[in-house]
């Protein structure tokens, strides 16, 4: 008689207060580090079963927000509820139902892949037998079954990341928090990881993801907030953000380096025109039409590209192009 569901990864959320299908709710949430205000009065709600993203440049406050949700870092002000509880008073209870994939892997490199799962499951006080069963499924899920008895140290970055995710799932959490899950991975490893996260999502696990990869956010997130300098600059679904903060298409034009005046003559041909050192971006509903308009003015770029507007355009228009360190 199975006492725990081992076939589904991440059991559906339970024991949520009646009426509240909110997994996380923040109002005026603040995080201060001495003088620095890392998170500056942010509001957001995360609904059960959705995949919610925090997008932003480095230092935007994503990780600080994440650590507060994971009950690893106390808030400096405002309201925060996680799984219907207060992180300040119910930290251990909340963490028992959360899986955390931190930005930096914290695996035990000297131990085997399987041992890492066994030990982590023991922190949750799960019975050995239960952990063993789940570990088998999770290693399969993470495509690590064949490496179960190898030590972790020589594994590739992608494998370590998948192991970290498997480890975070050992307690069958209601909420999985991923802090920059694919940073530093090669494209193959990223796509495999996205596939796995997509599976979790379709199994009903609530995902919270921070990233500065726009394609990742577009792939994985139902809703997201764009953070900048500790505040929320915009929020919505990827499609609605693109609609609101960008145009349907973008026409990219390239000119020779000394063609400044010619490029300037483009002004006014599209809704918004952005001059970059190497190219000119024209935000427009119809790229081909705009290209024809440009040509009609007697301007001939070296080459051009019409593409769909992306989250990246939204992101850059909201947070600017200046390098943030």
């Amino acid at each position: 008689m199975p006492s725990h569901p081992t076939s589904s990864l991440g059991a559906p959320a339970q024991h949520l207060a009646p009426g509240a299908d909110l997994v996380v709710s923040a109002r005026g949430l603040v995080k201060r580090f001495e003088e620095l205000v890392a998170v500056d009065h942010v509001d957001f709600d995360i609904v059960r079963g959705e995949s919610f993203g925090f997008l932003g440049p480095n230092g935007a406050g994503k990780t600080s927000t994440m650590r507060m949700i994971a009950c690893m870092s106390p808030k400096s002000g405002g309201e925060l509820q996680v799984l219907g509880m207060d992180p300040q008073t119910n930290g251990p209870e909340i963490r028992a139902r959360i899986g955390l994939v931190p930005q930096e892997d914290s695996l035990d490199l000297q131990l085997t892949v399987l041992d890492n799962l066994m030990i982590y499951g023991r922190y949750f006080d799960l019975p050995r037998k239960v952990i063993k069963e789940r570990a088998g499924n999770l290693l399969e899920f993470a495509q690590l079954s064949e490496r179960a008895h190898d030590t972790v140290e020589p594994l590739s970055g992608g494998m370590k990341r998948r192991l970290t995710i498997a480890r975070a799932l050992i307690s069958e959490p209601d909420l999985l928090i991923l802090d920059e899950p694919t940073t530093g991975l090669d494209p193959q490893a990223r796509h495999l990881l996205w596939d796995r996260l997509y599976r979790l999502k379709s199994q009903g696990v609530t995902l919270v993801i921070t990233t500065h990869y726009m394609d990742e956010a577009e792939q994985l997130c139902d809703r997201l907030v764009v953070m900048d300098k500790g505040s929320i600059a915009a929020s919505g679904s990827p499609a609605s953000l693109i609609e609101r903060y960008s145009t349907r298409e973008v026409l990219e034009l390239r000119f020779p380096p000394d063609a400044g005046p010619a490029a300037a003559a483009i002004d006014g041909v599209a809704e918004r025109v952005e001059f970059l050192p190497d190219r000119v971006l024209l935000y427009t509903a119809n790229g081909e039409q705009t290209l024809a308009d440009v040509m009609a003015r007697g301007i001939t770029p070296v080459n051009w590209l019409v593409r769909r507007s992306s989250l990246e355009d939204v992101f850059l228009s909201l947070t600017g192009r200046t390098l943030i360190d």
């Binding site: 690893m72 028992a96 914290s106 035990d108 922190y123």
Partner: peptide, 13 residues
């Protein structure tokens, strides 16, 4: 190795 942080993400205090 950041073992303590891994522990503190679980119910451990």
């Amino acid at each position: 190795i950041r073992t303590y942080y891994a522990m503190l993400a679980t119910p451990l205090r």
